[in-house]
Design a binder for these strands. Sequence first.
DNA 1: GCATTATTCAACCTATCTGTTGATCAACGT
DNA 2: ACGTTGATCAACAGATAGGTTGAATAATGC
Lengths: 137, 137
Amino acid sequence: MHDTESRADEALDRAFMALADPVRRGIIARLSRGEATVNELAEPFSISVQAVSKHIQVLEAAGLVTRTRDAQRRPVHLAPEALERLTSWIDGYRLAHEQRFRRLDAIVQGPAAARTRTASSENETTNTNNAKKEKKS
Amino acid sequence: MHDTESRADEALDRAFMALADPVRRGIIARLSRGEATVNELAEPFSISVQAVSKHIQVLEAAGLVTRTRDAQRRPVHLAPEALERLTSWIDGYRLAHEQRFRRLDAIVQGPAAARTRTASSENETTNTNNAKKEKKS
DNA sequence: GCATTATTCAACCTATCTGTTGATCAACGT
DNA sequence: ACGTTGATCAACAGATAGGTTGAATAATGC
């Protein structure tokens, strides 16, 4: 089963999993327009307030939102840094893939052009996370 | 009850859910360096090939990878457009949120003291990008 | 044809997710 | 002090995700 999983992996697990639900994405969308309480966030949905409260706990555990205190209300706020980490992770591999294609094109279109890869190795290490340490055994 | 969920939502569900697993993210990472077969993709992991095959089906259903045929092998390829759609979704709300804060800062810092917010919302002022630089009058 | 290789299908088990209802806690307002 | 409001906790149920093993499909190479 899930024996050993690094901290960075678990953080990405929670963050992506948190976004894999339309209710939670709706909450993110709402919060992008400003903070809101649990009851306010629950209003557009046809589920119980308790269910929304759980969703918010999932988002909070994923670091995607934070909470403050205002009397008996607990306003929820967006945490855009966490969202930025997700786009960074995705873009790391997406851009690496596209750049690899650019190199392939260079190779196909001429042997001399393939050597331009050595000069343009800037984006090869832009991954924010480990790409090779996925083994558990 | 998930009876009322649009097609776009379901696509995002599948895509984010697909990335919410370290094995599948490892597959994505591997594919960013070039196509690979199921057995090749399974090698770094301590799970069965069947399990990896299922993971690839999940990624394929999410549109994150495509497959071709080469004799009895079925090479898997990255589909960077789908990844790009995800970053677009995230960035949409992230940037909307940051822009909203820029407007708030402009309003608060316009007349006089901004103490009202800056003391009670420290985590919100930690914008990752060059905020506070722009000012919209 | 037949064994081999690559991959998938099928059945199953278990853990986790998402929702429910009912009770509880905490901070107001009067 | 007391009832109300906002939010969470607890216990439960149904669905599904992710893993296993064993059998089946499909293309390859003798």
